[in-house]
Design a protein around this nucleic acid. Structure first.
Lengths: 207, 184
DNA sequence: AGGTTACTTTCGAAAGC
DNA sequence: GCTTTAAAAAGTAACCT
């Protein structure tokens, strides 16, 4: 009856309000991260799926939006780090990671583990490195993956070390500090990965 | 069948009941070094040095024991608590049933693992591998119902088991699955 | 550069918010 | 869902010398 209709209208109003609020949040975060439109659309699709599966219960809209963006970046092979996503939200990195993992399982997103080479173009652009350096870094990473030097290691740390080596090879040297900053890892991590890559792949840097 | 020998139990969580009700404030005074801050957590925390375990005591009389590496030490811990409470004139049961709630163990597959390949062959829907967040691959086994953490070194952590036999079953199971797909 | 400590993940019980 | 306990795995981070 009338009560029932009022309730439905209220629910649908609330749902619509939440959805438009979420999509506004999504746009805000995405533009702060310079995420392209196709990836934003993928994020929105994922967010809508999460809503349909009642995944917002017990979670914040902001957290699910952040998780959707992280997932969409992963799916389109241009992953952003959890730190990058967290930098445009009040949601903590730990919570975004947790939400993302739950979404990936529950929504059956079947997302492959991220690989170091997915980060090369973005990090090299920020470092204004040449195409030659990117190519070198990708070659090094292919060897690293073929020799299984990456299991369990953070993809960004491995990518950072490969880029550091590539920058030395092409003579466009970037400091570990500069690379560490764009990759969001510490210089210690770059050194550790650098040591392992050069030793196990017998890489010689001098020219 | 002696995979058992290569399994190291690292922690056992067990629970029991020592009484219908316990006055934690009184116990806090009886057990030197105990921590009781009901605002923060409803249980009283008490750590033993030998065996090196920790006990949580609740006002319902329920008690949890964590940190023991074998069942004897779980029993020893509970007996020590019972003894100390009795000496403080606090009435508690004598031989309470002890229920093992969780066992954490480590096993070594003795072979480096390519976690990305394992994630794909075990099926992305059964496994979680997010190296940016954690170096281990999380594998939820349905039967026995335990969770395995697989590392690149070949080390495996098993948690969620209530009996040692479940750990052995799970370990043999993954080993066979990895051998079948040639990843070990 | 090292070294130490600490945090990430998994699990379960307990009582209460 | 959170709070607290213990414990391992391996990687990364933070802080100190």
């Amino acid at each position: 009856r009338l009560r029932k209709w009022q309730k439905r209208i209220k629910v649908s109003n609330a749902a619509e309000r939440n959805l438009s609020q979420a999509l506004q949040e999504l746009e805000r975060m995405a533009s702060n991260l310079s995420i392209p439109n196709d990836v934003r659309e993928t994020s929105a699709v994922i967010y809508r799926k999460a809503v349909k599966q009642n995944m917002i219960r017990g979670r914040s809209i902001e957290g699910v939006v952040a998780g959707s963006i992280y997932a969409a970046c992963r799916i389109t092979n241009v992953p952003r780090t959890l730190d990058e996503i967290a930098s445009v939200t009040r949601v903590k990195k730990k919570e975004i990671g947790r939400t993302y993992r739950i979404m990936a399982r529950y929504l059956k997103l079947n997302i492959l583990p991220s690989k170091p080479d997915d980060y090369v173009n973005r990090f090299c652009s920020k470092l204004r490195l040449s195409m030659e350096a990117r190519k070198r870094a990708e070659e090094i990473l292919k060897m690293a993956i073929d020799n299984d030097l990456t299991s369990g290691k953070g993809p960004t740390g491995v990518a950072a070390a490969a880029i550091y080596i590539a920058s030395l090879i092409t003579g466009e040297r970037r400091t570990q500090r500069a690379i560490a900053e764009v990759a969001g890892v510490t210089e210690v991590t770059i050194r550790n990965r650098y040591k392992e890559l050069t030793e196990k792949l017998n890489l010689t840097i001098e020219e | 069948m002696s995979e058992m020998e290569k399994i190291t139990i690292e922690n056992i969580v067990a629970s029991t009941s020592l009484a219908e009700h316990l006055d934690l404030s009184r116990i806090a005074l009886a057990l030197e070094g105990s921590e009781y801050e009901p605002e923060q957590f409803p249980g009283l925390i008490y750590r033993l040095k030998d065996p090196k375990t920790a006990v949580l005591i609740f006002r319902s009389g329920k008690v949890n024991c964590t940190g023991a590496k074998n069942l004897e030490n779980v029993k020893k811990t509970i007996d020590i608590i019972i003894d100390k409470l009795k000496k403080a004139k606090i009435e508690v049961y004598d031989n309470p049933d002890i229920i093992v709630q969780n066992i954490v163990a480590v096993y070594d597959l003795e072979s480096d693992l390519n976690l990305t390949d394992i994630a794909m062959s075990l099926g992305l829907e059964n496994v979680e591998y997010e190296p940016e967040q954690f170096p281990g691959l999380v594998y939820r086994v349905e039967e026995p119902k335990v969770v395995l953490l697989l590392f690149g070194s070949g080390k495996v952590v098993c948690t969620g088991a209530k009996e040692e036999s479940e750990i052995e079953q799970a370990v043999i199971k993954v080993k066979k699955e990895l051998q079948k797909v040639g990843l070990i």
